[in-house]
Design a protein around this nucleic acid. Structure first.
Lengths: 252, 252
DNA sequence: CAACCATCACTGGTCAGACCAGTGATCCCG
DNA sequence: CGGGATCACTGGTCTGACCAGTGATGGTTG
């Protein structure tokens, strides 16, 4: 096996076995090279690999440090290989919203067209939950509402595609909720759009539902873009695992 | 920002933008170094980072390859559970075409808007191949043409979603080709639609391209439905697992 | 002719040593 | 005492060499 791979495993083991705690400084590259009797290149390559895995962070002139979120279970990286796209690639967020605009629009269209009375009941329930919940604290009702609509489209392919984007969507929904809701005028608009969407679907107006849904996603996207241009740092909220259990164990 | 970080992002973007497909070989370290005008060390460090993220895999003596599970291990990647939907449920085929109508339309729209000269070249090449091939024998050029358009949309999420539907799409495309082409009038219409789509994209007319693409998918869907109603048994051709085309390896 | 093996031109893996570029403490001068 | 220059660290990049798998090519041999 490649030496650099061995080195990265060895260091990772050292860190995760408790030898090194979060925020703690890792020996310098030159020290590690001397200690493990390999060249500095190998050390650097191993460190880059750990960096890619999110185990450590490196700061020029200072050194390498054990990443704070080592335990990893609630780390974005665990949410799927696509998730890391969002770190450092904010454009991808808008790519996602671009696709969502189409799919949510279609889902709304089909839902308005095909929803059964059972679907109506579910959507209504989700909508009530959405209105009654404090959106600042939880984005789940928002997602639940959209989910109910998607399922009412009665298109298994559509459900499947959107479901596979669920984690990413949850993240963007949370981002939008967290960033937009504090802004009264934005939030008001969003609430209004949800209501319009709800009514269009319940009334069986496909074209209208589609228009509202697409406008909704587009509005979220543009709002986020505006805020970014204003210089506000977007808040990124990690996805909360369904079955909570934030037990940061075993280090220290 | 550190150069190696820039390099890794650049490569990552390249891969996920669809420029490089899973299992595809990445240019050698020495080539990358020459093209990006950095030292081989930087390339190696960047590659190790991507390796840590699971984006690529490296094999001694062979090269580096885009990891098969890049698009998402837990989602659409394993088409297993979904494929069974088709057996005995022909309606699912139309569900798929319903979704495709939206996504292909969006892809065409974005391609007409964003395609670079390189994209134009690829699309033209694919279009030529499409015109010159006997569609009765092979559906691959058809798929290649659509694929080139999708990649020109420069939306990695869209590329990812459609790519994960690739096998299913291939199946529907083959179904359409196999069933529609023998009908002279249908086939003529399809050829015409392809030409219109090609021209709209090359001319940079997004709205037009979107309209044509959606009409195309809808036409295929409706034609199949017609034939089914006429009593003709639809031909189902199993997907050929063989070589996935798409060997664009342009970097820098 | 066919089977085989040496060679060669690739690929990544490792090494050594040099120099550039941030960081922060320390020291010396105003 | 305060503040800027210095210096000894840190990581970041470059160079060029050599080692080690891989596979195709072509010549040798049974």
């Amino acid at each position: 096996m490649a030496i650099s791979r061995e080195v990265s495993y060895r260091l990772e083991r050292l860190i995760l076995d408790g030898g090194l705690a979060p925020e703690q400084k890792i020996p310098s590259e030159r020290q590690l090279a001397a200690r493990l009797r390999v060249s500095r290149s190998v050390i650097r390559e191993a460190l880059h690999e750990l960096q890619g895995r999110g185990v450590i962070e490196t700061r020029h002139g200072k050194g390498s440090f054990v990443s704070t979120m080592v335990p990893g279970s609630d780390d974005l990286r665990e949410q799927g290989p696509l998730m890391h796209l969002f770190e450092g690639h904010p454009r991808t967020l808008y790519d996602l919203l671009e696709v969502r605009e189409q799919l949510e629009g279609q889902a709304a269209f089909l839902a308005a067209k095909r929803a059964t009375s059972l679907d109506h009941h579910r959507i209504t329930k989700a909508f009530r939950a959405l209105e009654e919940t404090d959106p600042l604290s939880n984005a789940r009702p928002d997602h639940g509402f959209h989910q109910a609509i998607v399922e009412a489209s009665h298109n298994p392919i559509l459900v499947h595609v959107l479901n596979s984007l669920k984690n990413m969507m949850l993240m963007t929904v949370q981002a939008s909720v967290a960033n937009l809701n504090p802004r009264a005028e934005k939030r008001k608009k969003i609430v209004q759009q949800h209501r319009q969407l709800y009514e269009a679907i319940m009334a069986g107006r496909p074209a209208s539902a589609q228009r509202v849904a697409m406008a909704h996603v587009r509005f979220v996207s543009e709002s986020l873009r505006d805020m970014e241009n204003e210089g506000s740092e977007l808040i990124r909220i990690p996805v909360i695992p369904e079955t909570a259990g934030c037990q940061h164990s075993s280090i220290g």
